[in-house]
Design a protein around this nucleic acid. Structure first.
Lengths: 248, 248
DNA sequence: GTCTATATAGGGATAGAC
DNA sequence: GTCTATCCCTATATAGAC
């Protein structure tokens, strides 16, 4: 079978992008090693994982400002002084998280435009790709959304631009589809924002989908089906190459 | 012409619910006067408005934890000691905001179920009603969303229940419509969450809609049209009693 | 009803031992 | 590379004058 992004299964995505576990933390280390004092990669990677994981646990439950570095020290088992060998400051920690996340999104989602996909395939790949990214980096997404206010104005602007560019990509595929006679669409901007809204809910309201036992691929498929319905493209749904079991 | 909620214009909404300006702050005073030392209503109302407005300005731009009571004192022109005549503590301030907002939503949106509206009219009223509430209480919504983590577990649970009940109401109207043969819908839960997602975006991403010059009623109409498209109810849209100018 | 002055705690960050 | 001990600041909250 074809590879990601032609094959939009989670398995194909995982095989194309190796982002989980150790490779993820190694990537984080590479991105920010100039800023830290620790030179030994193995030591650094293990502790970076501890620090970031603990930060997500604490900050995502009570907020970054409410999390003290003493809390973080207890949770990681690393002393206060020790932490400062890995981060420049508390603000720097948040800044690094946003930077890493943005870079990964850019690589995985931004790279889709180079694939020259047909409008429908492109929209499907964007939606499934974002959902799969969230599956893997869920706490990163949530953190960046909730703590954006605490970052520098410059970094805030970067994040807004990512969202605008994301929607531009969606709108471009929609326009192409309209020109090809596949879709009809009155308000592409609002439709793009609808997709963004639904994707963001997947991490913002994870409690709700967990409560209702909604599966990852089921949700991505629903977002895609909704979009197709709003574009008046019923036949496209039937052509979907990925068949999912529907919960009745 | 019929009154709200039959007439879904903003004007009709405003006439039915007098929530803007002084009446709003008087309502806040009534709800929480037992908790404050100031007895003179006129003095209290004026200062409550100052305190809440300043809290929204500061907390919504840099976060509640990052806003100190010294900041709040400067912004309101009320001394540190003075503030404590109006609030019990910083946590109490956040708690009161959430409580007031929840009570208003319950009154305006929760009350819609007593109106015995037809499915399509009910869905329209819920969507337009929520958007109009946000128009008036936008900073309240944003504050409650972003600062929910800082509230008591009990209050967090209340807020989640509001969201679940809101979606139950949507699903009920959808079911009625399906039984009446008006709609078709595979996944009512996910469709309800789509509507919630779009409504929340209206306050979460106000910068984006402002940038794109999307008007309030235009947005509400789009959310409604999208829902109708996903329910396979094209004819319903044409029947819409409110005609809006479409930006081309 | 509003203010100034102050008590007390906890925060981020660093120096220097090991 | 990691720790303990400490510096210094800013936060919330209150007491008591006006």
């Amino acid at each position: 079978m074809a590879e990601w992004p032609k094959d939009t299964s989670f398995k194909a995505f995982q095989e194309r992008w190796t982002l989980e576990g150790e490779p993820l933390w190694r990537g984080v280390f590479e991105m920010h090693k100039d800023k830290m004092q620790i030179k030994n990669a193995n030591v650094a990677i293990a502790n970076l994982e501890k620090i970031f994981t603990a930060t997500f646990k604490l900050a995502n439950s009570k907020g970054l400002q409410a999390m003290s570095l003493r809390d973080l020290s207890k949770e990681t088992g690393i002393s206060m002084g020790g932490l400062y060998a890995y981060i420049e400051s508390k603000d720097d920690l948040a800044s690094v998280i946003e930077g890493v996340q943005r870079q990964y999104i850019d690589k995985v989602i931004g790279g889709l435009t180079d694939e020259n996909l047909e409008p429908i395939d492109c929209l499907r790949a964007i939606i499934f790709g974002e959902i799969y990214m969230m599956e893997i980096m869920s706490p990163w997404y949530y953190f960046c959304f909730m703590e954006l206010k605490g970052l520098s104005k410059e970094q805030q602007q970067f994040a807004l631009n990512v969202e605008l560019r994301f929607e531009d990509t969606l709108m471009e595929s929609i326009s192409e589809g309209v020109e090809a006679g596949l879709f009809t669409c009155d308000k592409p901007e609002l439709l793009a924002s609808q997709v963004t809204a639904q994707l963001q809910q997947w991490h913002l309201k994870h409690w709700k989908f967990k409560l209702r036992e909604v599966k990852t691929e089921e949700y991505a498929q629903f977002v895609f089906d909704s979009l197709m319905a709003c574009l008046g493209a019923q036949q496209a749904i039937a052509e979907s190459p990925v068949k999912l079991q529907r919960i009745s």
